[in-house]
Design a binder for these strands. Structure first.
Length: 678
DNA sequence: GTAGGGTTAG
């Protein structure tokens, strides 16, 4: 049973390549209008080579020429207007960029190239994803001291793009010059690199360190960090902190930051806040683009606020923007979330007419909404409708339907659909794998469960919380309790916290099969997780530990949770411990029990004394016990006293005289009684 | 002469 793939990468990333940016399916006439009014900062158009070529360049710079085709007439004209050294550098740039042997090219042309020329080449390598050459050139620049702050920021940026945040960080840490290390461009590059690679917490930690070391953050710094809040738990409050800090530093939000903030609000169910940021943005003179509108619309979806959504779409149309596929699909989401299934269906028809329903996504939205409202039959018919329309179903629609069937108790149908998926498709990720696993588990298909687990292993799909949960529940159902336990251990190691009821059920069964220490381990997993634990849990594990004679562990449980444990259970524990537990801890146990408000009865004292008599070398402990008893007002009853006297030879006369002093004599008032809560 | 964002599904 291998549930912990050795690979640390997740299968999800293998299966889903980085999505390519969506293009707007708009008519050319409208699209021009949108591009000019989109107000997105114009970053994209600045970087497009078409725009660069079209831009008027009265006095071409080295950068411009290096990007042009040398055969181009314009460039030839430009060449004539420049000095020889200039042309030599321009030529050297091209030679180095185009040379198949970077080493020798640098040897030949390196002397001519200035730092800014090398930076041009560096960025060129980065843009072309020539990572090997990028590193090699950067090393060369370092070795020849032809390096500037720009070299660092570009290099770090591209190292982040090539998904190597550790390398970028290492580079940054290796900078010894303080002013270079505090250069805002370089810092922004490093932070961006961490954020991009999903290391938001690290980026915030580094950010604090940078500020401490003298960085003065600018708007881009905050914008970069804000972007990290989008895919992070509790991103909204983190984003708010950043906004507060940037305002405190006298910086202003721009349309990029507002865009990011709207996404954060939408994914954190902050509908009203999204709206207020949207308005604030407009008040400050930034005109929203289609992304701003879509994000706000998405925020409305979480509240199912379809009236506002419709107003927003109207508002957007009157501002001259045309709803695109994403916008309309998001509007469908609003209707689905608002349970307006008639409107949803109508909109789906409209999407289809516009050619926007060619993939499964809008169908998935509707199916999922229907299924979660209990309308499984309707969901099934949308699924079939989608298949009839030759829309290719994929992992999403299958996982929605399989999970719905499982939830609705239609296990056979779920299993059949899982088999259908396996027969027709070979794209797996953790979500579809979980749905398939769930179906096979509920249908009791052990062979298929095991096969699916092996498949996940082979494809390096990391099991997630749900995977573990499904499997543990299933193994319990099949009475494979040790397997369930091992799976739970694995789950715990991976940082997932199992739910209380699952722990409770497994713990109970482990106790039954006398897997006492395993049961205690389950108890500990729950106890040291952030989850709540029901009070009865402590007593449950206490009985198991007593049965397994794991008395030291039982002692810890009692010590920490006595107030949640019944007096009968405490009594049972005390008896077991004094009888069989570690002799060195007997006094401590008695003190703890007394300290939690229980009176200790004479039979227990007598048992303790018997233990000490059996091991006379522990006579100091006996003495301590008797002294403690005296201090707490307990007395030694006659039978215990007789027991000690009978064994007087083991302890010595003086000892006996001390312990049998008058204060220890039995008083009638304290006689009798088993422990009673004080 | 360098650095920032993005909308929809399980």
């Amino acid at each position: 049973m291998e549930l912990s793939p050795t690979s640390t990468c997740t299968g999800f990333h293998h299966i889903h390549p980085r999505p390519t940016p969506l293009s707007f399916p708009l008519t050319p006439r409208v699209s021009t209008a949108i591009t000019s009014s989109s107000g997105g900062g114009g970053r994209g158009s600045q970087r497009s080579s078409a725009a660069a070529a079209a831009a008027p360049t009265p006095t071409p710079t080295l950068v411009d020429i290096s990007c042009n085709d040398p055969q181009n007439g314009c460039a030839v004209d430009a060449q004539r207007r420049h000095s020889k050294p200039y042309l030599a550098r321009k030529n050297a740039i091209l030679q180095v960029q185009q040379s198949p042997h970077l080493d020798s090219a640098l040897q030949r042309f390196g002397g001519v190239l200035k730092v800014q020329d090398l930076n041009v080449i560096l960025r060129n390598f980065g843009q072309q994803s020539r990572w090997q050459d990028l590193s090699q050139l950067f090393d060369w620049m370092q070795q020849h001291s032809k390096i500037s702050a720009s070299s660092y920021s570009s290099y770090i940026k591209f190292t982040g793009t090539s998904l190597n945040p550790a390398k970028a960080l290492e580079m940054y840490n290796s900078i010894s010059d303080e002013s270079t290390k505090n250069n805002v461009f370089i810092c922004n590059s490093v932070l961006r690199c961490l954020v991009r690679n999903g290391k938001f917490d690290s980026s915030m930690k580094l950010f604090r360190k940078m500020k401490h070391n003298g960085l003065i953050p600018d708007a881009i710094t905050y914008s970069t960090l804000l972007a990290g809040c989008m895919k992070v738990k509790d991103g909204y409050s983190k984003a708010l902190d950043l906004v507060q800090e940037l305002n405190y530093n006298g910086l202003q939000m721009d349309s990029v930051m507002y865009g990011t903030l709207l996404v954060v609000c939408a994914s954190n169910n902050r509908c009203e806040e999204a709206q207020s940021y949207f308005n604030q943005m407009k008040d400050e003179g930034h005109s929203p683009n289609i992304y701003h509108y879509s994000s706000l619309l998405n925020a409305y979806a979480s509240g199912g606020n379809y009236k506002k959504a419709e107003e927003l779409v109207q508002d957007m149309k009157s501002s001259g923007l045309v709803p695109n596929k994403v916008m309309l699909t998001t509007q469908l989401k609003v209707y689905v979330r608002g349970r307006l299934f008639e409107k949803s269906r109508d909109l789906l028809v409209e999407l289809d007419t516009l050619g926007f329903a060619k993939d499964e996504m809008p169908y998935c939205l509707l199916m999922d909404g229907l299924a979660k409202t209990g309308c499984i039959d309707e969901a099934r018919s949308v699924f079939n409708e989608m298949k009839e329309k030759c829309v290719k179903p994929g992992g999403y629609s299958y996982s929605i339907m399989i999970s719905s069937f499982c939830r609705g108790g239609l296990f056979e149908e779920a299993k059949e659909l899982a088999e259908e998926f396996e027969a027709k498709y070979d794209k797996y990720d953790v979500a579809i794998s979980n749905a398939i696993l769930c179906a096979y588990c509920r249908a009791g298909e052990m062979e298929s469960v095991m096969r699916t687990m092996r498949k996940m292993d082979e494809l390096a799909i990391s099991p997630d919380y749900n995977t573990f949960h499904i499997l543990i529940k299933y193994f319990c159902k099949e009475k494979l309790y040790m397997l369930a336990y091992q799976t739970m251990e694995d789950m715990h190691r991976k940082g997932h916290q199992p739910a209380e009821e699952l722990c409770s059920s497994l713990l109970f069964h482990l106790g039954k099969i006398k897997a006492h220490s395993e049961a205690f381990s389950v108890y500990s997993m729950l106890k040291y997780s952030k989850r709540t634990m029901c009070k009865a849990f402590h007593e449950k594990i206490l009985h198991i530990l007593i049965a397994g004679k794991l008395l030291k562990d039982a002692y810890v449980v009692v010590k920490d949770n006595a107030k949640f444990i019944s007096s009968a259970a405490i009594k049972k524990f005390a008896k077991s411990f004094v009888k069989l537990g570690n002799i060195n801890l007997i006094n401590d146990v008695l003190k703890v029990i007394h300290g939690s408000g229980y009176k200790i009865d004479q039979r227990l004292f007598q048992m303790a004394v018997s233990r000490y008599i059996a091991q006379p070398e522990k006579k100091d402990l006996l003495l301590q016990l008797l002294q403690w008893m005296r201090g707490q007002g307990y007395v030694v009853d006659s039978s215990t006293r007789n027991l000690i006297l009978k064994n007087a030879h083991l302890f010595g006369q003086q000892f006996i005289a001390e312990i049998l002093s008058k204060k220890h004599m039995m008083s009638k008032a304290l006689k009798s009684h088993w422990m009673t809560k004080g």
